[in-house]
């Protein structure tokens, strides 16, 4: 997977559902060289931490959890033998479509892309963004961080919990 080429027709940043779907459809529609880059060490993005069901009702007429839903995309993605890089962070994209990446396997590396698709998902607003005042003790999390700690890391964020 890390035997990447220097040049790709399409480079997709982010291997969440959007990035995976983009990679699949690019390949199915004839793009030769496609590369998917993901910062985490697995494919699936935010879906991996959403272990509650409710995904896939429209698309598959199934009542799936996040990881189950992601797996459907990951399976079709892997079947297409598309190149991908995990544990890899994109540091910079230049106007001339050079993509600077870094990872322990590649080191610092510059790739060239015909087109670039940004599918990096979104970012939660911080408490300061929402102008929530007061003290700043340990134990205040955004929903996403708490979800990741509990569902992915298997760590409990508290015994008595309040959700604002």
């Amino acid at each position: 997977m890390s035997r990447t080429k220097q040049k790709y027709d399409i480079v997709i940043i982010g291997a969440g559902p959007a990035g995976l779907a983009a990679a699949i459809s690019a390949k199915e529609n004839g793009a030769e060289d496609v590369l998917l880059i993901e910062r985490l060490d697995c494919l699936g993005g935010i879906l991996q931490q959403c272990i509650h069901p409710g995904f896939g009702l429209k698309k598959f007429r199934l009542y799936l959890t996040g990881p189950e839903y992601a797996k459907k995309y990951i399976d079709s993605f892997l079947k297409l033998k598309i190149d991908y890089l995990l544990d890899t962070c994109v540091l910079e994209v230049t106007p001339f479509k050079k993509v600077l990446v870094t990872s322990p396997t590649t080191g610092l590396k510059t790739l060239e892309a015909g087109s670039i698709i940004f599918a990096m998902g979104c970012r939660e607003r911080t408490r300061a963004n929402l102008n929530i005042f007061g003290d700043r003790p340990a134990g205040i999390f955004t929903a996403g961080t708490a979800q990741r700690l509990i569902n992915i890391e298997g760590l409990m964020v508290g015994k008595e919990i309040i959700i604002l």
Partner: peptide, 9 residues
Amino acid sequence: RCQGGFDLE
């Protein structure tokens, strides 16, 4: 920007 939202764990 994310104030540890992504990197805390």
